[in-house]
Amino acid sequence: MFTPRVRLPRTATAGEEIEVRTLINHPMITGVSGPDPRDMLARFEATMNGETVFACDFANGSAANPTIIFYVRAAAPGAFTFTWTHEDGRQFQTEGTVDIS
């Protein structure tokens, strides 16, 4: 449950475009029309070398198992963190590294 999955290229040259594919298993229950209580992620944030490069605030129209794909300009050393924050404050995090040549 709530397993984050991220796909990054293994290597890149500095300045090159890299595709970042992210997914987290989460039902994203709004509580609007079903019997289940609300259970939603609030935010996704990606950092590269400590700096935020991309973020997303989820809302009721965000589909279950949120998938986001975006494109980053690779910079050394290529250390990424990906954090999903639940509305109740819990955080789910994964990391990834792209070897920059």
């Binding site: 935020t52 009721n60 129209g61 965000s62 589909a63 949120p66 986001i68 794909i69």
Partner: peptide, 22 residues
């Protein structure tokens, strides 16, 4: 039932203003 779907925050670290989502 509610208008919000998603709000993406972009930076110049991205190579293009392109996002895939569901």
């Amino acid at each position: 039932p509610a208008p919000g779907i998603g709000h993406f925050h972009l930076t110049p670290h991205l190579t293009r203003a392109e996002v895939f989502t569901r």
